[in-house]
Simulated assay, not measured.
Amino acid sequence: MNTRIDAHQHFWKFDPLRDSWIDATMRKIQRDFLPEDLLPLLTANKFEGCVAVQASQSEEETKFLLDLASKNDFIKGVVGWVDLRDKNVAKRLEYFSVHEKVKGFRHVVQGEPDDFMFRADLRNGIAALRQFDYTYDILIFHRQLPAAIDLVNHFHDQPFVIDHVAKPDIKAGNISSWKKDIQEIAKAENVSCKISGMVTEADWSSWKEDDLKPYLDVIFENFSTDKLMFGSDWPVCNVAANYNLIVKTLEDYIAQFSIEEQNKIWSENAKMFYRL
């Protein structure tokens, strides 16, 4: 089997003020998570590397991840943060473009109003990504998919990837409106999807593989094995599972596919999308 890439994980030095989203229900992850914590998990599960994704909205965060990446070869790429709404966004992108490991950017849109992706200043920032060959990670709740559909159709040649399968309400078993919107957004050739963050949308204490299966069926039917990539969402996944279980859950599901297709999901698609 080829070695694997974890296309979505986070590092942080826990700061209760900055990281206020990690509330009392998430006590398990109210601590530091750094490369030395992740490396044994990657090694045990045959991963050659990972993509570190921003968790807080500051350029300091991007620099923090780049510093870790410079000291740890297994961090193959960084998805950072810049203020895409800043009218000088091209200057900020140029500033980061000297760092080979910066592959793209993300904004925590799930925390913004539902019309956020229609904003002219944000779209100006998305347009600027193209000249630096940067990707954009779409982090949204399922109710924001209609706005995301409009965004990806507006920027045909911008590579987008949907994080956490757009956070459907797995816990309640709601699937129909999310499924309809996934069918629509998957038609856009410039959009990929990360198989990540699903267990945290399920019932943290009692989810089973069967709870995830209908949602996995939808993304595999619509995105195909050419546009899907694995992401652990570590350490956030720890509130509902652990690294080994996240990997095993996907291994079980994709056992039905050819080895070639499995390799695409585990590594080839991430390498191509992020130019690793």
Score class of each variant (00 low, 15 high):
residue 53 V to Y: 10
residue 53 V to E: 12
residue 55 A to Y: 07
residue 56 S to C: 15
residue 56 S to R: 11
residue 61 E to T: 07
residue 62 T to M: 06
residue 62 T to P: 07
residue 63 K to I: 12
residue 63 K to H: 13
residue 65 L to I: 06
residue 66 L to W: 05
residue 69 A to P: 04
residue 70 S to C: 12
residue 74 F to A: 07
residue 74 F to C: 06
residue 78 V to Q: 07
residue 78 V to W: 05
residue 79 V to G: 02
residue 82 V to I: 14
residue 84 L to P: 00
residue 87 K to I: 10
residue 87 K to C: 07
residue 89 V to Y: 00
residue 89 V to C: 00
residue 91 K to Y: 13
residue 93 L to I: 02
residue 95 Y to P: 05
residue 98 V to K: 15
residue 98 V to I: 13
residue 100 E to N: 14
residue 104 G to C: 05
residue 106 R to Y: 11
residue 108 V to K: 06
residue 109 V to Y: 03
residue 112 E to I: 10
residue 114 D to V: 14
residue 114 D to A: 12
residue 118 F to S: 15
residue 119 R to L: 11
residue 120 A to C: 12
residue 121 D to R: 08
residue 123 R to K: 13
residue 125 G to P: 08
residue 126 I to P: 00
residue 128 A to C: 06
residue 128 A to K: 02
residue 129 L to P: 09
residue 130 R to D: 15
residue 131 Q to V: 15
residue 132 F to V: 13
residue 134 Y to H: 03
residue 136 Y to P: 01
residue 136 Y to S: 02
residue 137 D to Y: 07
residue 137 D to T: 10
residue 139 L to Y: 09
residue 140 I to G: 00
residue 143 R to V: 12
residue 144 Q to L: 03
residue 147 A to Q: 11
residue 147 A to R: 07
residue 148 A to S: 12
residue 149 I to A: 06
residue 150 D to V: 14
